[in-house]
């Protein structure tokens, strides 16, 4: 039952950036988020590689959605994503060696990034390839922007510098932010800020694709 009007390409992209931001709203892909946000360069690199894989996997899975039987859809998605990531890694290793030396260790981590599988299951398997492409772009860049914001805070407060430009002298560095607990704290504060911004906007036109597993949105807005 389709209760919402058809979204345009741009609307789907914006949706992935804000309303269904994978880090601040959907809270998918927390593991790489915590691990990679210790420095801005790592975060941007990881975000862009994930976006690239996400766009391709959304496209491929959407194209194949009528062929893949429902019963074996999860193993099929996993095999497709794992193959994609391995191909990306091999091509990066062979043709972009300097990029690989800075990002190389994060690329295999993309396979276990829940965002990829989550969007395959909740969007790509139910929408057209063009829409899935838009979703991949929106969610991917939403992820990249989110983890970049987190890493700016963590690197600045914990290491005093961003992109090798030092801002804060050593004695004011707060070690907590470089470690995992600090990552959680920064994440929670940013989520709180994002929530209050969304609340202020008032109009709650939440997209519901009847996928309750990804529905954090309704929980927050009911009876608060």
């Amino acid at each position: 039952m389709d209760t919402e009007k058809k979204k345009s390409f741009g609307e789907i992209v914006i949706n992935g950036l804000f309303k269904e931001n994978p880090t601040f709203v959907l809270m998918l892909g927390m593991c790489p988020t915590l691990a990679v946000t210790t420095s801005l360069t790592n975060a941007i690199g990881m975000g862009l590689s994930t976006t690239f894989v996400l766009i391709l996997s959304n496209l491929i899975i959407s194209i194949l959605k009528d062929i893949i039987p429902d019963r074996v859809r999860i193993p099929s998605y996993i095999v497709i994503v794992a193959t994609l990531v391995t191909i990306v890694q091999l091509i990066m290793q062979g043709y972009f060696p300097s990029l690989y030396s800075s990002l190389g260790i994060y690329v295999p981590l993309i396979v276990v990034n829940c965002i990829i599988l989550g969007r395959a299951e909740s969007f790509a398997s139910k929408n057209t390839p063009i829409d899935s492409l838009a979703d991949g772009i929106g969610i991917g860049f939403g992820f990249t922007i989110a983890i970049s914001l987190i890493s700016i805070v963590r690197e600045l407060l914990g290491g005093g510098s961003i992109l090798n430009m030092v801002f804060i002298p050593e004695k004011y560095h707060i070690m907590l932010f470089v470690l995992a607990p600090g990552a959680f704290l920064v994440l929670s504060v940013l989520i709180a800020i994002q929530n209050s911004l969304r609340r202020k906007k008032g109009k709650e036109n939440v997209s519901c694709d009847m996928n309750c597993a990804n529905c954090n949105i309704h929980k927050f807005d009911k009876g608060e």
Partner: peptide, 19 residues
Amino acid sequence: DALILFLITFVLSVLLSRV
């Protein structure tokens, strides 16, 4: 269903080995 899964995996492995 199993046959389709096998075919998907097979095609992908061939592609991967080529790369």
